[in-house]
Simulated assay, not measured.
Amino acid sequence: MARPPRFDTALLLDAAVRLAAEHGPTGVTMSAVAAAAGAPSGSLYHRFTGRPALLAEVWLRTVERFQEGYFAALTSSPDPRTAGCAAARHVVAWCRAHPEEAALLQYGAREFGRDGWPEEHRRRADEGNGRIFASVADLADALGASGPQDTERVTLAVIDVPLTLVRRHLRDGTPLPVHAEELAERCTDALLVAVPQG
């Protein structure tokens, strides 16, 4: 029976996330990840075709883990305002629970080298983004949004507001305050209640 690999993909990606959280995307190189994981460079090249594929996996794994709970929150209640507020709370709560991965949310896919990603990774990113936009559009419809301004208000409420609250603390290197989830929820609710009901 073959021995399991000593340095599995999850361990290598965990090391890459730590580097990205500390140094940004530029700190994630094949050699730096190998050194941080205590692995030979060959372990990296055995699992990733090169740095673009490594950066893609670091970004996508982080975003997909975040999105899993976000989508669940958006469908957690038949009342769209309640679901929207739950999504805002999720943004803050997830970032509190996963500070290193949350640090990556300060960046965009392009800063993680999206233009050089293999096609399969770009497709995964597009599918995830498409799901987000579709879910927010569904929420806007459920709230009775009647035009682009209402839809923009919903996007601001359930994406931009909670992420802005989190990013400020991430940039400053300060912990999220204990009231952050409640603050995000109240701000989101104030925006959602202003959407005219159809």
Rank of each mutant, 00 (worst) to 15 (best):
7 F>P: 02
120 E>D: 15
149 Q>P: 00
110 R>S: 14
41 S>N: 05
178 V>C: 09
105 L>H: 03
163 L>P: 00
67 Q>A: 15
183 L>V: 13
138 D>H: 07
86 A>T: 02
82 T>C: 10
190 A>K: 02
159 I>Q: 06
38 G>F: 07
127 E>V: 15
96 R>W: 07
61 R>P: 00
61 R>D: 09
67 Q>T: 10
135 S>F: 02
168 R>V: 10
190 A>F: 04
98 H>K: 07
84 G>N: 02
37 A>G: 04
96 R>N: 07
19 L>H: 05
127 E>L: 15
64 E>Q: 12
136 V>K: 04
19 L>I: 07
137 A>W: 00
5 P>Y: 05
142 A>Y: 01
4 P>K: 11
131 R>N: 09
84 G>D: 02
140 A>L: 09
197 Q>N: 09
183 L>K: 07
45 Y>I: 01
139 L>P: 00
1 M>L: 15
170 L>W: 07
13 L>S: 01
144 G>Q: 01
35 A>E: 06
115 D>C: 11
13 L>Y: 04
22 E>G: 06
4 P>N: 14
115 D>E: 15
134 A>E: 12
30 M>Q: 05
126 D>N: 07
159 I>N: 06
31 S>V: 13
9 T>C: 05
65 R>W: 07
190 A>C: 13
50 G>W: 09
52 P>H: 08
156 L>G: 09
115 D>L: 15
37 A>K: 00
141 D>G: 06
127 E>P: 07
193 V>P: 05
79 D>T: 02
140 A>I: 08
111 E>F: 04
63 V>M: 11
150 D>F: 03
164 T>P: 06
6 R>K: 12
195 V>Y: 03
124 R>K: 10
187 C>I: 00
133 F>Q: 10
197 Q>L: 12
163 L>D: 05
89 R>W: 08
58 V>Q: 04
11 L>S: 10
10 A>M: 10
32 A>P: 09
84 G>F: 01
126 D>V: 12
184 A>Q: 05
68 E>T: 13
22 E>V: 07
43 S>D: 02
123 R>W: 12
183 L>E: 11
136 V>T: 11
147 G>P: 08
93 A>H: 03
117 W>M: 13
160 D>P: 02
184 A>C: 12
30 M>V: 14
11 L>G: 09
29 T>M: 00
100 E>T: 08
74 L>R: 03
58 V>Y: 03
170 L>V: 14
186 R>A: 15
125 A>W: 06
151 T>E: 03
47 R>I: 09
55 L>V: 12
116 G>E: 13
167 R>L: 15
31 S>F: 06
11 L>R: 07
96 R>L: 09
34 A>M: 00
6 R>Q: 11
72 A>M: 07
165 L>R: 01
120 E>F: 13
192 L>T: 05
128 G>Q: 10
90 H>E: 12
168 R>Q: 13
23 H>K: 14
124 R>W: 12
63 V>K: 04
125 A>M: 11
1 M>G: 13
171 R>Q: 09
120 E>I: 15
6 R>A: 14
28 V>Q: 02
166 V>S: 07
8 D>I: 11
9 T>I: 04
164 T>Q: 08
103 A>T: 06
94 W>D: 10
12 L>Y: 00
119 E>G: 08
157 A>V: 04
137 A>S: 04
157 A>G: 11
62 T>F: 01
99 P>S: 09
175 P>V: 14
43 S>M: 03
145 A>T: 02
